[in-house]
Design a binder for these strands. Structure first.
Lengths: 186, 186
DNA sequence: GAAGATTGACTCTTCAATCTTA
DNA sequence: TAAGATTGAAGAGTCAATCTTC
């Protein structure tokens, strides 16, 4: 979470290490830490601006966008969770907060009594329509505009490569990831 | 925070938009969302594994690494905050939790009565020395090993480019960033 | 039993307010 | 007044347990 999910020389020679860890070389560190810092700093600015200008958190934004793009402005909860790659409990807590603020509403699902529909309200629609253009501009300003088409493609390539490796070995898969078929949200 | 800090078509034509937002094209979306997903999924696995195998959170890890690399195993609180790019209150809360668990200790600073030293304890050292090798292996396994030297360099290049733009316009700078001179931690 | 979903407890992060010393 | 640091409250995320329906 911070910028220092370190990988550096940590234990000099105090204790005998079982298998002599291979610490990261210059190139590896530059890539790894560069990515961490880039993500964290871009996101910090983006989120801060979003909440200041629109009163929406990242979570609010993600959910409202998903719902606003859905056919009738509603989705099943599990569909939302899959789409966002969120844990179901995270989604549930988030929806509770948003429902309290009148941005979404929960409705019963006729075809499956276990299920719930999540519906965007008028207030929710108003909020997302006001927030989205600014947010996109911020993404451009702090991220996209800095990069050339070649750099954008290189980054996509890196992401695709890493993500496909993660998909390959489903270790420690936090539940939502298993269902992900490669779709993207935005 | 989720994978959907959207930028997509949100408002079709309901209200007259002041300046017709430019939504992201294919290439832009691939890069932007690819980065978000890559970061989030890699981190999710890394953090989960770290806490399961070592009982340390990302925050614990970052602080213990920083302290273990410091001259006497201690740093001023504000130095730590600057290094990690953390807010001071976040650091303070984190230290409180870690002190409770015996991983670090706070000491008075002789030269500045306002200040505090943060010191790594024996338990802290033991914990980080046990955790680090595994963590580095995980970083390799889920991230570095998937990428070629060219891809690593391309990623570094992207990160450097974006970060230098952020440094350039200090908008919405969340306090810690201002002091960052380009040093890396880890 | 498994799937869809919620809840409670705990950890983590942020913001604003505060306190003390330089 | 500004710098170094802490605190409390509220929002956010994770995990394990639970409940209902398939």
């Amino acid at each position: 979470m911070d910028h220092v999910s370190s990988t550096h020389d940590v234990s000099p020679a105090t204790t005998a290490v079982p298998a002599a860890p291979r610490w990261l070389d210059e190139r590896e560190q530059a890539a790894w830490r560069g990515m961490l810092q880039m993500y964290q700093q871009v996101m910090a600015r983006l989120n801060r601006n979003l909440v200041v200008e629109s009163g929406l958190s990242e979570g609010d934004y993600a959910i409202l966008v998903s719902l606003s793009e859905a056919p009738e402005g509603h989705l099943r909860a599990f569909e939302l969770a899959r789409w966002l790659l969120w844990e179901k409990s995270r989604l549930s807590h988030q929806l509770t907060r948003m429902e309290r603020r009148g941005l979404v509403r929960r409705e019963e699902c006729p075809s499956d009594a276990r299920g719930a529909f999540v519906v965007i309200t008028e207030a929710g629609r108003t909020a997302i329509e006001a927030a989205a253009p600014r947010h996109v501009e911020d993404v451009r300003h702090w991220f996209l505009d800095a990069l050339s088409p070649q750099q954008l493609d290189a980054l996509s390539d890196v992401a695709t490569t890493v993500l496909s490796r993660l998909e390959a070995d489903g270790d420690g898969c936090p539940e939502a990831l298993a269902a992900c078929t490669g779709e993207e949200q935005d």
